[in-house]
Amino acid sequence: MQKDQPVLRLQELTRVHGSGATEVHALRGIDLDVFPGELVAVMGPSGSGKSTLLTIAGGLDTPTSGKVLVEGTDITTASRKQMAALRRRSIGYVFQDYNLIPALTAAENVALPRELDGTSARKARREALAALEEMGLGQLADRFPDEMSGGQQQRVAIARALVGDRRLVLADEPTGALDSETGESVLGLLRARCDAGAAGVLVTHEPRFAAWADRVVFLRDGSVTDTTLRSQAETLLQGGVAAQ
């Protein structure tokens, strides 16, 4: 899996807010690669820079220096038009409060980025229905957001983030507004989409949700302090977890 090109590559990323005495270094030289099939969780105390990292990776903010490569294209030097196209075609964003358009049905919400990208309405709808089906929401395609539960809305948002050939999903506290079990099922779906080949970055302060990731990156004061990889869980448990 790691032999592929990274879907997202952050290189020596820095972000400084303000200047002079009020200067704040939100990010100090971050390097991070996220490969297809990989879910990376970013954790850290508030103010550690984790949300800044995600907004820059998604092209919603620009770095002070450094590069952001999405499928090989440096989005920091892309034109507004190129950037908009990348956001429609390559990058999916999932927010804590879903950000669905209330006047559109689930299927219309999911189809929208495809239609904006020039796909015919018929084809966009077909893709949207398939994406909703994968999220287990086939029957809710024609419901409006306010006719769905929070967990259902967030699953629609994930479907919208990944519809078409988009392979990068950036999720900012996606479980923040959900109860524990619903949050877990949303994470399970995100995990499944990554297992199917997408690359995901998840910002969360919940250890239990971060634990779904392949890698957990700890940020502190704008720098990566540590990274965990998964170990071989099977061998871990065969030794007896509570032998201690």
Binding site: P207, A210, A213, T228, Q232, A233, L236, L237, V241
Partner: peptide
């Protein structure tokens, strides 16, 4: 604290993977 946190989160990743398999 940080060394323990890494260790604990890593164990959670492992348990979570086993849980995902179980589910």
């Amino acid at each position: 604290i940080q060394a323990q946190r890494l260790h604990t989160i890593r164990a959670m990743q492992d348990y979570t993977r086993l849980k995902a398999q179980a589910i």
